[in-house]
Design a protein around this nucleic acid. Sequence first.
DNA 1: CCGACTTTGTGCAAACGTTCACAAGGGCGT
DNA 2: ACGCCCTTGTGAACGTTTGCACAAAGTCGG
Lengths: 288, 288
Amino acid sequence: MSRRTRSGSAAPGIPEATIARLPLYLRALYALADRCIASVSSEELAAAAGVNSAKLRKDLSHLGSYGTRGVGYDVDYLIYQVSRELGLTQDWPVVIVGAGNLGRALANYGGFLSRGFRVVALLDSDCAVIGTTVAGHLVRGVTEIERVVDEHKIMIGAITVPAAAAQDICDRLVGAGVTSILNFAPIVLSVPDGVDVRKVDLSIELQILAFHAQRKSAAGRAGSELTSLDARRGEERAIVAAGRPRSGRTGPRGTVAGGTVAGDTVAGGTVAGSTVAGDTVAAEAVGT
Amino acid sequence: MSRRTRSGSAAPGIPEATIARLPLYLRALYALADRCIASVSSEELAAAAGVNSAKLRKDLSHLGSYGTRGVGYDVDYLIYQVSRELGLTQDWPVVIVGAGNLGRALANYGGFLSRGFRVVALLDSDCAVIGTTVAGHLVRGVTEIERVVDEHKIMIGAITVPAAAAQDICDRLVGAGVTSILNFAPIVLSVPDGVDVRKVDLSIELQILAFHAQRKSAAGRAGSELTSLDARRGEERAIVAAGRPRSGRTGPRGTVAGGTVAGDTVAGGTVAGSTVAGDTVAAEAVGT
DNA sequence: CCGACTTTGTGCAAACGTTCACAAGGGCGT
DNA sequence: ACGCCCTTGTGAACGTTTGCACAAAGTCGG
């Protein structure tokens, strides 16, 4: 908790939400600079970054009073100021552990990674991959973590290994002196105080998307079979209030819908459609 | 804005922040189920998910009163409830456009993607890639977007193409009927109302990490050269107050530090270290 | 030099999210 | 059956974030 909110040192008053948006602004600014646009108003920049203009102005005001009233912001100057605030005016050597698809994707992200970041090592544990070249980087064994980190004074590491290996890799990175970790593995890493962990999970965003998509579906067509979904919800609640609590003690494991669900999913990730059917049966069996 | 906050239909009161954490809980729950743990307390589950236990309880309370006082939550049952709330009890066919490193990584994410999601098509514009098989999927041409979306009734699309092509692909996906888009390209997509866009940017997280790392560096060693960074900041502000505003009109483009910065970066992503030097010079030239 | 116009920077209030602390409610031993 | 103990669910306080609306401050035309 304290790990993410304020990482070690006390923040001098620059909100976390603002920090999270600065990269967005920076990207928009670079796009403007590429098109040789020298000056930009908060309205335009906000539109380019996809945020409210008042929010953008307030965010930028935290960095200082760059910008000219009646005119706007000087693109190049603002790029520099935002970069500096983010710490991108210095060189950040990065080690990527895991040369699978994700690791390779990250190593190839050059176009945007290279602004301040430099991949100095790409490691993997798979002997079949070690020795090959990916995105111009020779893949080396994970045994070299400590040496590489120490040699290049690396403070940032990216973990793109399978979930099962992630904590071990994390421990070794931290042990070697890495204090900032970008975790792509779908587990929660535990790290000592003073170490920053940020995570990127491809499936989480997809699941959030599914939630909203479901909403849209349910709202869109109101008279079709999808309405039975809402109806089922009502019954479901009823089960909880009536049938479920009793079964908690009766069986060592839930004999209601839940058991079926886990059986399906643990088995090997069956498409969840069948799960719904399983529950509908349970609902009828218990509810009526 | 309204696009992300509430996507089309009015939310019945379940906070966005909660939705964003549900996948996290779900993952922790699956991990518990794998270890054959039938019941879990909010404290334990919160620890596994890396959040505050009070937050977890409040989040879950939004779904309903699942859970037994004095005991905890039935793992299997909760898995089902959370899955259903997220819309994962139904099958979501997904199309991935862009079979580069990222697209491949996503297609191979099977272990976690498969819980509710199903990659039905992998498209690319590169003739060299079309026809090859990636993660068990035949790569087809982007020209087939419309056909594939229509044929499989696809509502969710992932964009893993380069930034330059992303908006075009997005437009075509939307035109074909896709209403939820997961965007990996580092640009802000513009979509009509009713279409959901979520973005994943590998470099943004890295930049946030850099910000905190910089903080840690500056705080850690107080007497070394890093202190000059803070000193430079002071001077920087001085320039803004004194020298900069005047140059705004004098030259068509900023002749101060900003120009140098952009020249460096636009040229081809030089490591930003040199930029700092450039600015220091400018600071001395103008400030003193 | 002045007055009109434009855009920044910010005080303020409302919305939102988090955390604490505790009452309500259930299991478990006796 | 009863009381102890444990954990959930939630009311209320707190902090953060957002967005409005406007004064301050600059440019531009005459």
